[in-house]
C-alpha cells in the first residue's frame, strides 16, 4: 500500500476568519437549537393547522351525512370529540424536546461546548418555542373567532380546556402545556444520554408507577377533590413538572458522556 503524501507543497493561507464566534456559549447553543428555522418556528404552526383542517373535514362529513348545519349541537359535539390539533401539537413538542437534547447534545459537544451552557441554552430554547407556540395559537384562535368558527360555528380552540374563549387563559394554558411537553421530552432524552435506553425505560416505568400510585391514593378522595378543584391547580402542576424536567435535564447532562 502506498503512503498518501501531499502532492503539492504547502503554501500559506490567508488569515483565518476569527469574527464569527458567538460571544456567549449559551447564545451559541440557542442559535444551534434554532438553526433549522422552518422546523423550529413554522412546523408547530403547520401541525396545529393540519389538526384543525382534519377536524373541520370530519365535521363537514358529518354535516353532509346528517344534514345538520352550522351551530347544531351534533356538529359542535363532533368538533369537540375530534379536536386533534392540540394533542398533535403537544406530541410534536414532546418530539421536539427529545430531539433538542438527544441528538443535538452530541453535535454540540462535537462542535465544542460545555454541558452547563448546553443545558441552559436548551431550556431557554424550550421557553422561547413555548412562547411562540402560545402566541401562534392565540393568533389562530383570532382567525377562528373572525371566521365565525371556521364558517361552521366550530370553536375548536375555544373549549373549556383551552380557557373557554378567554385569550389570557388560552395563552397561559398553551404556554404551560408546551413547556411541559418539551421539558418532559428533554428530560427523557437527557436520562437516555446519561444512562442509556435502560435508564430511560426505567425512568418511564418509575413515572408510570408514580402516577398510578398517586391515583390509587387519591381515588378515595376524588369526589371531594373534584368539588374543590380549581384550574390554577393544573397551572401549578405544570410549573412543577416543567421545573422537575428542567432539573433532570441539568443534572443528567452534567455527567453525560458521548461514547
Amino acid at each position: 500500500m502506498s503512503a498518501v503524501l501531499p502532492s503539492s507543497s504547502p503554501r500559506a493561507l490567508g488569515p483565518a476568519r476569527r469574527s464569527g464566534a458567538s460571544p456567549s456559549p449559551v447564545l451559541a447553543v440557542l442559535r444551534l437549537q434554532a438553526v433549522k428555522r422552518f422546523e423550529t418556528w413554522a412546523t408547530p404552526l403547520v401541525v396545529l393547522l393540519l389538526g384543525l383542517v382534519f377536524t373541520v373535514l370530519l365535521v363537514l362529513v358529518v354535516w353532509r351525512a346528517t344534514g345538520e348545519g352550522p351551530g347544531s349541537p351534533t356538529l359542535a359535539e363532533v368538533g369537540r370529540g375530534t379536536q386533534v390539533a392540540v394533542p398533535w401539537l403537544v406530541g410534536y413538542l414532546v418530539y421536539n424536546g427529545v430531539q433538542s437534547v438527544g441528538t443535538t447534545f452530541p453535535l454540540a459537544l462535537a462542535l465544542g461546548t460545555a454541558r452547563r451552557a448546553f443545558a441552559v441554552g436548551t431550556l431557554l430554547h424550550h421557553a422561547r418555542v413555548a412562547a411562540w407556540v402560545a402566541v401562534a395559537v392565540l393568533a389562530v384562535r383570532g382567525v377562528e373567532v373572525v371566521t365565525g368558527g371556521w364558517w361552521a360555528g366550530l370553536h375548536l380552540l375555544g373549549g373549556a380546556a383551552l380557557g373557554g374563549g378567554d385569550p389570557v387563559r388560552l395563552v397561559v394554558t398553551v404556554l404551560l402545556a408546551s413547556l411541559v411537553a418539551m421539558s418532559v421530552g428533554g428530560a427523557f432524552a437527557a436520562v437516555w444520554l446519561r444512562g442509556g435506553a435502560r435508564a430511560a425505560g426505567a425512568a418511564g416505568a418509575a413515572l408510570g408507577l408514580l402516577v398510578g400510585a398517586a391515583a390509587l391514593v387519591l381515588v378515595a378522595a376524588a369526589p371531594d377533590l373534584a368539588g374543590a378543584f380549581r384550574v390554577w391547580w393544573l397551572a401549578v402542576a405544570a410549573v412543577v413538572v416543567t421545573a422537575a424536567g428542567a432539573a433532570v435535564q441539568v443534572v443528567a447532562l452534567r455527567g453525560a458522556s458521548v461514547r
Partner: peptide
C-alpha cells in the same frame, strides 16, 4: 449523531458560533 433534518448548510452556519478560528 446529527439532529433530524440537519443539513450541510446548517452545519456551516453553526460551526463559526463555537470556534473563533473557524
Amino acid at each position: 449523531r446529527y439532529p433530524d433534518d440537519f443539513h450541510l448548510a446548517h452545519l456551516l452556519r453553526v460551526g463559526p458560533l463555537f470556534h473563533a478560528g473557524w
